[in-house]
Design a protein around this nucleic acid. Structure first.
Length: 275
DNA sequence: TTCCAGGCGTATC
DNA sequence: GATACGCATGGA
């Protein structure tokens, strides 16, 4: 990794990385763009309630007020910096559609998020839109002074979570929290299970179906072979891959999915403008 | 006003 | 196992 320490900051030179494409592409919901001017963009957010302010100018990144220890142990892992995306992208580009998708947003990286937070986030995501998902999670974190533990949520009721305005999803959050709090399910164990076993375990939670389970596995447990099928990816499959995914993404379907999700949504937005 | 959003539970066949 | 429908909320 090509980085140096400058007073209280870490300065990193990193290819295949863009903050907008990675932090605002619907995989994480707690990052906020705080400024963008003169080619420098800055985001603030958290991993496991550790705060970070990060800036980007081209392929140079500044991790503000960060120790080398935190950079190497927390953030390099969170941003998946130990994975060679150049190599992955080259492999994916054997497919024409993948090549085009990567051309739209080659700076997407799969974040290694917290298991519990990712599960909750995607329970909240169902039949919902991204701005409102962010609003609900923001109210949740504001209320608890950080992302709540499952112990915190296990104490709540549908009524006491009314402030979230999360609708029918509140009871699903409580059911998940209760199952982990009582030890009926174990996130560490699930993350190490064979993937079909893991899917089955997660789907014991009310409000967790195939899609949410797949997201929890991909975004919270870095199971890159998981492939969440939402309304957008269903369109991709219908329009581009009626015969199924190409061989070149095998084993990394989840990372390929990130590029495809961004691609179909961007293409759709552009078509809407043209209509 | 109506439609839709990174789906799922339930009822019905 | 497949298919239809309701669901809370709020932005477009």
């Amino acid at each position: 990794m090509d980085y140096k320490i400058s007073k209280y900051d870490i300065i990193l030179k990193q290819a295949d990385f863009d903050l907008d494409e990675t932090l605002d592409c619907g995989q994480a919901f707690r990052w906020e763009k705080v400024s963008s001017s003169g080619g420098v963009k800055t985001y603030c957010g958290h991993y496991l309630n550790n705060p970070l302010k990060i800036s980007q100018q081209g392929d140079i990144f500044i991790f503000h007020n960060t120790t080398e220890d935190d950079f190497l142990n927390l953030w390099a892992s969170y941003f998946d910096l130990y994975t060679d995306y150049g190599k992955l992208k080259a492999r994916f580009c054997a497919d024409k559609t993948m090549k085009e998708a990567i051309g739209y947003a080659g700076g997407i990286r799969l974040l290694r998020q917290d298991k519990w937070e990712a599960l909750c986030s995607f329970i909240i995501s169902q039949n919902n839109n991204i701005p409102r998902i962010k609003g609900i999670i923001s109210r949740l974190c504001k209320h608890y002074g950080g992302f709540p533990t499952y112990g915190d949520l296990a104490k709540e009721t549908e009524e006491s979570l009314g402030f979230l305005r999360s609708g029918f999803r509140a009871k699903y959050l409580i059911d998940a929290a209760t199952k982990f709090d009582r030890g009926e399910l174990d996130l560490e164990e699930i993350s190490k299970s064979e993937i079909n076993e893991a899917r089955k375990s997660l789907m014991q939670i009310k409000g967790v179906g195939p899609k949410v389970a797949e997201c929890a596995l991909l975004y919270g447990m870095y199971r890159v072979e998981a492939f969440p099928m939402d309304v957008w990816i269903k369109r991709v499959m219908k329009d581009y891959y009626p015969e199924g995914l190409p061989d070149c993404v095998k084993g990394f379907e989840g990372i390929a999915q990130q590029y495809l999700f961004h691609y179909i949504r961007t293409a759709n937005a552009n078509n809407s403008l043209a209509d």
